[in-house]
Design a protein around this nucleic acid. Sequence first.
DNA 1: AACTGTAATTAGAATAATTCTTGATATCGG
DNA 2: CCGATATCAAGAATTATTCTAATTACAGTT
Lengths: 142, 142
Amino acid sequence: MVSNAPDPNPIPDIPEEIAGLRMTRQRQEIYRILIEQRNHPTANEVFMRAKDRLPNISLATVYNCLEALVQHGIIRQVNFERESSRYCPNLREHGHFHDATTGVIHDVDFKPGVSLADVLNLPPGAVIQDVEITLRGKLVAP
Amino acid sequence: MVSNAPDPNPIPDIPEEIAGLRMTRQRQEIYRILIEQRNHPTANEVFMRAKDRLPNISLATVYNCLEALVQHGIIRQVNFERESSRYCPNLREHGHFHDATTGVIHDVDFKPGVSLADVLNLPPGAVIQDVEITLRGKLVAP
DNA sequence: AACTGTAATTAGAATAATTCTTGATATCGG
DNA sequence: CCGATATCAAGAATTATTCTAATTACAGTT
C-alpha cells in the first residue's frame, strides 16, 4: 500500500530563474540538494550527492554553481576556521554553533529587536555590510 | 640632538617562557613582530618581517611558531573568509571589523556586561568555548 | 666541558581546497 | 535555423598550509 500522507520532507520545484540567475539543470540540482538536507555540506559533499541525479557533473561545475548561487544571494557560504567552505540556503541573518562533540552545525538566530551595535563597540562611522558569527562549543544535558 | 622622550611605541622584552611555552629566539621575534605592529599580518607577512632579524628563518618555522603561540593561548588566529589566516596578540575577547575600502582590520570589543546569550537564540544546553565575530563594511564620515 | 635526550628549526616535498584554462555544449533572441 | 553568449566539463595550475626527514639547539646531568 502506498501512503497518501503528505511527504514529510517535500522537495520544492525550483523555478527557471532566481534573483536574475538562470537556473540551469545543474544549478537546480545543487540548490535542491542544499534545501533538501540542510546540514551545511561542503562542495565535495554536494558533488557526491549531485552525482546521483547528474552522473556527469564535475566538481568544477559544483564550485561554479555554488559560486553563482552565492553571488546572487540565493545561498550563503560559511567558513569555519580553515576548513572547507560549507553552504547554507538559510538567508535569514544568522550565526552558526558548531558542536565540537558531534560536528553538527546549528543555525543560531538573533533575538528579535537586537542590533550588533548594542553589544559591540564598533569603530565610529562603521557601516556593516556583512556579519559572520561562529560559535564553537558543546551541548550538555539541560 | 637625541630625544629623551620615552619611546612612543616601546617594544617589550619577551620573557624566556610564556604560558608554559619556551620562548626560543624565533618565537620571541615572531611574538615581538605581532606586538610591535598590530595589523593582523598573515604568516607570510610575519615571515618577511622576521627575516630582518633572523635571515635564516624558514616559513615552516614561522608557521610552527605561530601555531605554538596559538596553542598556548598567547596569540589568536583570525580567519576572514577563505583568505590566509591572520594573527593577533590581542587576547581580550573581541571581534573584527574588516574595512572593505582600505582592507584595514579593526579590533572590536564587546560592550561591558553583555553576553552573547542576550543576543542569540542558542540551542538549549549550548556551552560556548569559542566565539568568532567578523564584520565587513565601510567607514563613513561621522 | 662533554654527554644525552628532547625539542625546535630548516628545506623541500606533499597535500587539499579552490580557481583557472580551454574547448565543448547548451540556450536565447532574432 | 543562426549567431552570440552563457554554461559546463576535464584537467592543469595555484595557494596556503602541513608533513617529512635531517640537522641543530638546548636543558639537565655528570
